[in-house]
Structures are given as C-alpha cells and as structure tokens.
C-alpha cells in the first residue's frame, strides 16, 4: 500500500541521515585518534625544548622547537598585521561608510570571495611580491603571505560582530559630541571586543595550520628564527618534510609535530568558543 511505502521511505532516509551524520563525526574522531596514537609515543620533553640535532632532516636526535617557535612567530606576526588592516576595515564599513550602501555590500562580497581563494594562490602571489621587492624566503615573507590569507576572513568576521553593535549606541555617542573616530575607538571597538578577539583567534588558528602559503615564502631551517629576514621553520612544513624521510626517528618527529599542531589548534578553537559563549551571555537582547 502507498501508505506503507511512504513510511518505509521515511524510515530508510532517516536511517541514512543518521548514518551519514555518524560517519562524518567518526571521521573527525578517527583523524584525531590516529594523530594521537601515532604522535604520543614520540612525545618527550626534548621534542618541545630542542631543535633537531645532527643536520638537515637526517639527524635522529632533538625535537621540533624550531618549528614550534617558527609557527608561533609566523602566525603571531601575520595575525598582528592582519588586525592592523582588518580592524580598521571592519570599523570603516560599520561606522564611516553609508550604512546599507553599495560600497559596503561590495566590500563584504569581495571578502567572502577572497576567503574562498586557496592558500596556494596566496603563496604564489606572496612569492611574486617577494621577487618584486627582492626578498628571499624569510619569516617576513611568510608573515606577509599568511596575513593576506587570513585578512579576508578576519575582516569579515570582525565586520559581523561589529554589525551587531546596536545603532543606538553609536547615536548616543554622537549625541555626546564624540566624533566618528572616537566613537569607533571607544564605543564600538570596546563593545565588540569579545567578538573581535574570537575573530582574531580563529584567524590565528587558520594561519598556524597553513602550509601551502608558506612553502614558497618562508623556507625551512633547523634553527630557531633569529631575524625577520631569515628563513623560519613551521609546524605544517616540519610535518610535510620530515614525513618524507625514510628514517623512523625523523618520521617520529613528524608525527609528534602533527600532534603538537593539532593540540595547538584545538586549544585555540576551544578558547575562541569559550570567548564567543561569553560574548553571547552578555549581549542584551
């Protein structure tokens, strides 16, 4: 009967949906468990406090301190640079520009589209920039490439949180005789601060995990970076390069690096989540 069939169909698809959801969630679990199981045996104090010993790729001793510090410097620098551009952009779109105007809509659209550009293209573009300016693969080159990579998502998510600041708050500030700049700086930025920090953390997380944009621009080295103009190691590339070496100890460093990177990213995303939860708790509706 038709009725039986439609209930059978309902049950079938409901089952498929639950299976699909479970599969996707278990992919995440599987990935995390693999990284944990492979990386944990190689974790030691040396791994996070020493640089690789005994020469490029081939040394069996030491750890990946060069990559940990390199990644933190790189992602930190890039995040800082992206804030310097992204925050003014987000403030401009919401405080200065005509609300609901074409320019605002076009800018948001441009950022959404830029956000879809893959990191390898940012890397290639960063590389052409570096050749243009006569730079060699260096921490600075990587910082610029990653900053460009995370800029659109940062500007856009800051824009979203600043947009939530009630219009009345701006007007109250203007009514007290404040200029737009004072309003932007003292009222809007402060009101949206937790959301802005969340945006910063998410962008930092994306920056620290990216490999394709730094592969041309940052180079790789066994040493802890001492200058902006010297090459620097990064965790993603430490994983990539060391995994390709047929020496178990070196591969072990790659697995350990993968674990360190994953834990770092999970910590950052957890922090972002807690921050945004706090944000919504204080929002007056």
């Amino acid at each position: 009967m038709a009725r039986d069939r439609r209930f059978a169909e309902e049950r079938l698809f409901r089952g498929l949906m639950i299976a699909a959801t479970a599969l996707i969630v278990s992919c995440l679990a599987l990935i995390l468990l693999t990284v944990l199981a492979k990386g944990l045996p190689f974790m030691s104090l040396d791994m996070v406090t020493r640089t690789p010993q005994g020469g490029y790729y081939l040394g069996k001793g030491g750890g990946v301190l060069n990559a940990i510090l390199g990644s933190l410097y790189l992602a930190g620098g890039a995040t800082l640079l992206a804030i310097l551009i992204g925050l003014p952009v987000a403030l401009y779109l919401n405080v200065y520009a005509r609300p609901g105007g074409r320019f605002v809509a076009a800018s948001r659209f441009a950022f959404d589209v830029l956000n879809g550009v893959p990191s390898i293209v940012y890397g290639a573009f960063g590389f052409t920039l570096m050749i243009f300016f006569g730079l060699r693969a260096s921490l600075l080159g990587g910082i610029i490439a990653i900053a460009l990579l995370i800029l659109p998502m940062m500007a856009r998510s800051m824009d979203e949180v600043i947009r939530l600041v009630p219009r009345e708050l701006l007007e109250a500030s203007y009514a007290l005789g404040a200029t737009r700049w004072e309003t932007a700086r003292r009222v809007v930025a402060r009101q949206a601060l937790p959301g802005i920090l969340t945006a910063v953390l998410i962008a930092f997380g994306r920056g620290i995990g990216d490999a394709a944009a730094v592969i041309f621009t940052t180079g790789f080295t066994d040493a802890v970076p001492g200058s902006l103009l010297r090459p620097a190691a990064t965790l993603p590339l430490a994983i990539f390069f060391q995994l390709g070496v047929p020496i178990p100890e070196v591969q072990g460093r790659a697995y350990a690096s993968a674990l360190i990177l994953t834990v770092l990213i999970l910590a950052v995303s957890l922090a972002a989540r807690l921050l945004s939860r706090r944000l919504t708790r204080h929002v007056v509706k």
């Binding site: 693999t34 994306r206 990177l261």
Partner: peptide, 24 residues
C-alpha cells in the same frame, strides 16, 4: 553537539589530513 564538531573538522590543518590520509 554535532555543529561544534563539524567546526573543529573545519579547523584541522590540511597537512594533518594529509598525514591521516597517508597512514589510514
């Protein structure tokens, strides 16, 4: 519960996916 897990999946760096791919 599921939505944040999917967000976490989005945040995992591409090299880590690569490592997992090679291993599994």
């Amino acid at each position: 519960w599921v939505k944040p897990l999917i967000d976490i999946l989005a945040g995992i760096p591409s090299v880590v996916f690569g490592v997992w791919g090679m291993l599994v």
